[in-house]
Design a protein around this nucleic acid. Sequence first.
DNA 1: CTTGACCTGTTATGATATTACATACATAGA
DNA 2: TCTATGTATGTAATATCATAACAGGTCAAG
Lengths: 160, 160
Amino acid sequence: MPDPDLAFAAHDHAHCAQDALARAEAVTAAAGARMTPVRRRVLEILLEEHKALGAYDVLARLAVEGFGNQPPVAYRALEFLVDQGLAHRIQRLNAFTACVHPGKDHAPAFLICRTCHMVAEAEASAARVSLDAEAAKAGFLVERSTIEALGLCPNCRGQA
Amino acid sequence: MPDPDLAFAAHDHAHCAQDALARAEAVTAAAGARMTPVRRRVLEILLEEHKALGAYDVLARLAVEGFGNQPPVAYRALEFLVDQGLAHRIQRLNAFTACVHPGKDHAPAFLICRTCHMVAEAEASAARVSLDAEAAKAGFLVERSTIEALGLCPNCRGQA
DNA sequence: CTTGACCTGTTATGATATTACATACATAGA
DNA sequence: TCTATGTATGTAATATCATAACAGGTCAAG
Ligand SMILES: [Zn+2]
Ligand SMILES: [Zn+2]
Ligand SMILES: [Zn+2]
Ligand SMILES: [Zn+2]
């Protein structure tokens, strides 16, 4: 994960999203999974901004575009994307964000700006090592872990 | 936080809960806050087991005991306890757990057993340091962070 | 004994998520 | 090609989690 700050830095986001989408297609193909229209569209919607969207926000977008407008339509597509590693669920927000570099095996930490609501992925392996070690002291085996930080992004810090 | 494994180890839980409750009284007194009957009862309920309870589970318990039976009754008491550091919210579970050593300033990690649903607190400062450092690389200022691990507790590992 | 802060209760509503079932589509044998 | 099978989508209904808004009660300071 070479760009922990990608989301916060000025960048060619159209290219950023296009690239993520292309990688996503590759990932699903390699996994023998189907990137259907709803799923692709949901991923595109999530990729529009480096923010997290609630399932119902996604659903509203889908509905006006002629897809189903009942919750399972959105939840199922989102679940698929999360399972394939193409999107992440942000627990604190009950919301979902596109993965900015699908294909790489990763379990990032999330940096959530409380002001502009941008969400970035950050390297979490060091933190996970500490956590796993601490858990091991208690005899606990960590299978998955959630690491999310709430605070101020560089842009919003400047304005405060 | 000397006992990361307290919840999983065999222990005199009646004493454990009584002690936490006594500390809680001290904490609120010191803070000039009021430990009212509803609040105390909610804390007692959370202290019955080292598990997390949803707000509506707590509410149901309160209702049969003659307290109000509308959601705000439970949510307000829980919010109070969390604000005072006497309980913690577990994001992954949308649920609350009593703090096992109130009074000590701490922001623990949580170890959640996916089988028996026990929840333990673990030392998280090392993980937090890593996270804060990684965030700093992106210019992000961490204000609060959530660290939760899902896995198998020592007891449930043994049975698997 | 009044005032103001805070606590509790209630109604109503909003937000998030899942179950169950029906229909449509893709693909792999027969 | 035809049909069987698994998978995906659509819909209705419901479950679960959370908050806004307001009314009335409690308590201690002044
Ligand atoms: Zn971008
Ligand atoms: Zn920001
Ligand atoms: Zn105990
Ligand atoms: Zn267990």
